Amino acid sequence: MKETNNDTSINIEELAASMRGELNSLPFLPSQCCIHTVPKQLHPLNEKACTPQLVSIGPLHHGKEELKPMEEHKKRHLQDFLQRTDLSLVDYLKDIKEKEKRLRDCYAETIEFSSDEFIIVILVDAAFIIKVLLSYHFKTMRNGKENIVYLINHGRFKI
Rank of each mutant, 00 (worst) to 15 (best):
M1S: 14
K2E: 13
N6H: 08
D7R: 04
T8A: 13
I10A: 10
N11K: 10
N11F: 07
I12T: 10
E13W: 03
E13F: 11
A16I: 15
R20E: 15
R20T: 12
G21Y: 08
L23S: 09
L23W: 09
L23G: 04
N24A: 14
S25C: 07
P27G: 10
L29D: 15
L29Y: 09
S31T: 12
C33M: 11
I35Y: 05
I35W: 02
H36R: 09
P39L: 08
H43S: 07
H43D: 12
P44Q: 13
P44I: 08
L45E: 15
E47A: 07
A49Q: 03
C50F: 12
T51G: 05
L54A: 08
S56N: 10
S56F: 02
G58D: 07
P59M: 04
H61V: 02
H61D: 14
H62K: 01
G63V: 02
G63E: 09
K64P: 01
E65D: 15
E66R: 05
E66W: 07
K68G: 11
K68Y: 07
P69S: 10
E72I: 04
K75M: 15
H77N: 12
L78I: 02
Q79I: 07
D80W: 05
R84L: 10
R84Y: 11
R84W: 05
D86Q: 01
S88K: 00
L89W: 04
Y92I: 05
Y92V: 03
Y92P: 02
L93N: 02
D95E: 10
D95S: 14
E98C: 08
K99L: 13
K99W: 10
K99N: 14
K101N: 12
R102S: 13
R102Y: 11
R102C: 08
D105A: 09
E109C: 06
E109F: 03
T110S: 13
S114V: 03
S115A: 14
S115Y: 04
D116R: 00
D116H: 00
E117A: 09
F118T: 00
I119P: 01
I119W: 01
I119F: 01
I120F: 05
I120E: 14
I120P: 00
L123R: 00
D125I: 02
D125K: 01
A126N: 00
I130N: 00
I130P: 00
K131A: 11
V132A: 15
V132C: 11
V132F: 03
L134P: 00
S135T: 07
Y136G: 14
H137E: 15
F138G: 04
F138I: 03
K139R: 12
K139M: 11
T140C: 05
R142I: 09
N143G: 09
G144S: 04
E146N: 06
V149R: 11
V149F: 12
I152M: 12
I152D: 09
I152A: 13
H154T: 09
H154E: 15
H154G: 06
F157T: 07
K158G: 11
K158C: 08
I159S: 14
